[in-house]
Design a protein around this nucleic acid. Sequence first.
DNA 1: GACGAATCTCACGCTTACGTAAACTATCAG
DNA 2: CTGATAGTTTACGTAAGCGTGAGATTCGTC
Lengths: 157, 157
Amino acid sequence: MTAPSQAPTQACADDVVSIGDAAKATGVSTRALRYYEEMGLVRPAAHSPGGHRLYAPAQCARVRRIRQLQDLMGFNLAEISEILANEDRLDSLRDEFHRHEDPAHRLRIAEEALTVMSDLDARVEAKQKRLAEFRQAISERRRRAEVVAAELQQEAP
Amino acid sequence: MTAPSQAPTQACADDVVSIGDAAKATGVSTRALRYYEEMGLVRPAAHSPGGHRLYAPAQCARVRRIRQLQDLMGFNLAEISEILANEDRLDSLRDEFHRHEDPAHRLRIAEEALTVMSDLDARVEAKQKRLAEFRQAISERRRRAEVVAAELQQEAP
DNA sequence: GACGAATCTCACGCTTACGTAAACTATCAG
DNA sequence: CTGATAGTTTACGTAAGCGTGAGATTCGTC
């Protein structure tokens, strides 16, 4: 198993930053970082001997991803947790794929990846559909109003 | 001004129901109904002499609309409040439109309706756009995986 | 090694959207 | 008129997603 961004690896030792710098780099508060960790969303790449959290670029990217899913797409942390789990699974499947040569094995991996992506997609599709319907309803009323307005423009210019 | 679903009219006297029946009819709790009222989203059509809330079909429809915007589209009550205000405004513009014959006046009404609808649409468009981008990203990865899987199918059937 | 800044771990506070219990009152069947 | 049922207000409880100290440690710098 290899969930890259989430793995509790002892870090590449290099380019890890403190929680404060990670916060600045991602635009979230240190409190939020600790909260995400508590919720199992992002674990520091390592800890200093004294117990301070250390974040590698991968973790910062993960945090930015979390905010994206939150702010821009309106998922809650529970949903985000599942989505990230799926994405992590995809990454690990990629790794596994490249580590094996056997076509039959690769096929099984590719197929699992496809189901995971279907799951991800379905999750979003539902949300998107509602919005599309809503916009449809608005745009219909809008077109009718535009026709009326155009007619009135002719009548009383 | 005529905001149909929201007007504190003394009701059509007919077919108004108690809060309990309104709750059953809309699928929300009585607590939620009182909360929506407190937040200024839905006012009962009338009250019984003893002070009990009475809901007409229009209010029930409004409540269902609220849940739709909440559950299916992920708006919070503050946003919903604004959306409903816009929709109420559209309704009252419709009424006003039909009460006046003057083309110039009608044109002004139609134009305001158009701006209100633009506002409503813009609100949703942003949300929808994010979701579309997300799905796009997924479907690209998906297509690549499908190609790989197809190739492997050939190789090891 | 000392000192200020940054982190650490509790731990309580805040907002949203209600749930839930308490103590009364209104409505309706009989 | 009498319950039983349903409704009313008031008010505290809850889960999510952090904000904000408090008091103790640790880090980086001189």
